[in-house]
Amino acid sequence: MSFFIDTDTRLIVQGITGREGTFHTEQMLAYGTQVVAGVTPGKGGTEVLGIPVYNTVREAQERHDANATVLFVPPRFLYGAAYEAIMTGIPLIMTIAEGTPVHDMMRLHHLAKEQGVRLIGPNSFGVISPGKAKAGFMAHRIFAEGRVGVMSRSATNCYETVYLMKRNGIGQSTVVGVGGDMIPGSTFADILPFFEADEQTDIIVLIGEIGGSEEEIAAQYIQEHITKPVIALIAGKNAPKDTSMGHAGAIVSPNGEGSAESKETALRTAGVHIAESTEDILRLIKKLL
């Protein structure tokens, strides 16, 4: 049993009638994910790829006993759509959009915690448990089923890593796109306990980057609670200060806060194996397996 999504996940796609929503619903169905309903306000009563569309998350959830939702909605509508999913009590909410205002995410982050639901993303490729199900837009053919858990702020660094693993015969248990924004719905430290408890996961790979202090917080959690080996890569060592490197969250403050050095030091102290590059992650996995 994978912890976030699995063959028994009953997924809603919010924004299913949009170009991206429809395309990726088709991809998710092809991968074997149970997409049970779509939601687009004003399009209730129609169908997309044979899947019924509703005006509200509540109706979709009640009719189809859905237990997860993925949001293919533009960033300016993310707050409203995620708010609706949280208040409907959908236990797992995955957000994709890049470019969500940080004040919106600040409110959603705390609201999801208060309501006891799990929010993943945004600026994320979603979640995949290879061979079982996926919710998001990741190119699933580069993933393989296996025993390494991966979570990443960056999509491209994660793709590079899992593809290298696949070509070397190593697969993943679950891969989570934590997302590249300043405030994620769930942090590395929020997700670590799931990998620790997951019977399918033997090794945990954390792909972080400059900016913020989630890696430092994760280091503390690893030191206190994680028994499985952890490998970490921090991207952005040579990025100039006070410059956003593309991801809204990937920025080192003028006073040096959020530097790769601070993150690597904290993780190393917690006993984490530090990788210098994506290839180095592969080398460390091979050593630990």
Binding site: S152, T156, N157, A235, K237, M245, A250
Partner: peptide
């Protein structure tokens, strides 16, 4: 030139190294 923030940072890191 790359197609994502993470890949740009990784490229710069390896080149600088």
């Amino acid at each position: 030139i790359s197609n994502g923030s993470g890949m740009i940072m990784s490229s710069i890191d390896l080149i600088s190294k």
